[in-house]
Amino acid sequence: MIRQEQMTVIKQQQIADTIFELTLEGDIARGMAAPGQFVHVRVADSFEPLLRRPISVASIDTENGQFTMIYRAEGRGTTLLAEKKPGDKLDVLGPLGNGFPLAEAGKKAFLIGGGIGVPPLYELAKQLNARGVETVHILGFEGKQAVFYEEEFRSLGETHIATVDGSHGTEGFVTHILNGLPKDFDTYFACGPTAMLDALQRALEEKKGFLSYEQRMGCGIGACFACVCRTTKNELDYVKVCSDGPVFPAGVVIS
């Protein structure tokens, strides 16, 4: 159930270049379940910035009523968010959207993330592991200074890192790693830039996959139509990334 709540900042730390990890506590966290959902955060008490910021959920701790977000501080809103300290309050709306479906026990899944699209895959990996699914993680970043959660993913399964500048792991993109791995997996899950998702769909068109789209949003609940995308059904058919997604089966959304 969607709630609006003044949540308490428990912890905030910078974990990579311009990347911050923020843990919040409140009732919203106790109602979270599906990996891949997001929250809409009001970063200031004033009307500037006016709009909330959509941020994906990286980890859920329902027992303690906490969840963790990972975001990039690059604009006015997220820069203000990066200034929050333990004990501060944040106006949060969530959980929002439809998350990733969970694969069956005994299956093998590839989890493929790019940049700030990596965070929602961490909770997904944890839940898949708990169900007995083998996960292989393929994560792409701009450079070594931007890499985060490498050890956390390694603790859950085989993990490969690609950096555009070659400063860490494999030089290039996640597709360069993917091309060198056996395609012995059952399902793939991906989140990242649109260009990356398009490349994955072309490379893995014979495989079952689920993609989480990053899109600019206004309301976050499907009312403003700011995040609509066309689908492959017909030219007049659209979906709203915030409420119909952000996760869709591969081959549905036209980017």
Rank of each mutant, 00 (worst) to 15 (best):
A16T: 12
L111R: 05
A162P: 03
I221L: 09
G169I: 08
V133T: 02
F47W: 00
H40A: 14
F141M: 06
M32P: 14
Y122I: 12
A44Y: 01
T163D: 00
G143Y: 00
A190C: 09
G172C: 08
I2C: 02
V228Y: 04
Q66Y: 09
S212W: 00
D186K: 09
F185G: 02
G36F: 06
C229R: 13
C219Q: 02
I221A: 02
S167R: 09
R52T: 13
Q4M: 13
T18S: 14
I28P: 08
H176D: 14
K84P: 05
F148I: 09
G132V: 14
Q66R: 15
Y149Q: 11
D27P: 11
F189P: 08
G222C: 07
G172I: 10
L102T: 01
F47E: 03
G65K: 07
A29P: 14
M69F: 10
L204N: 02
A203H: 02
Q12R: 15
F248P: 07
G36I: 07
M217L: 09
S212L: 14
A16Q: 07
I10T: 10
I28V: 12
F100N: 03
D186N: 13
G180A: 03
I15H: 08
G77L: 04
P101I: 03
A125T: 11
E214I: 06
E123P: 11
G87S: 06
L121V: 11
P119C: 03
F148Y: 15
C224Y: 05
I177N: 00
G113V: 05
I70R: 09
I138R: 03
G97V: 12
E74D: 02
D237G: 01
A44Q: 02
G245Q: 01
C229L: 14
F100C: 07
T68H: 08
E48P: 00
G87C: 08
F38R: 07
L121F: 08
E48H: 05
A34T: 08
N234M: 10
H168F: 15
T135M: 06
I70L: 13
S155I: 13
K233L: 14
A226I: 03
I161E: 01
R216F: 11
K107H: 06
L111K: 04
L128P: 04
D61P: 12
V39T: 10
I161R: 02
Q4V: 15
S243K: 11
L24S: 11
E152W: 05
Q14V: 11
E83L: 13
Y188D: 01
I161Y: 00
E83I: 00
M69Q: 01
G143K: 09
L156T: 09
G117F: 05
G99T: 03
G77M: 04
D165I: 05
G172S: 04
L211A: 04
L139R: 03
A146F: 12
L96E: 05
L81Q: 05
L80G: 00
E205I: 12
N98Q: 12
S167L: 03
G245A: 07
F67E: 04
F141I: 08
E74R: 07
K84R: 14
T18W: 10
G26V: 08
N129C: 14
A146N: 11
L51M: 07
F110P: 05
E21G: 08
A195S: 12
A58S: 15
Q215K: 14
I254K: 14
P120E: 03
A82F: 10
A34M: 11
M217G: 06
E48M: 11
A125N: 09
Q6I: 10
K126G: 04
T187W: 12
E142T: 08
N64A: 15
Q127I: 05
Q4L: 11
S59V: 11
F185N: 02
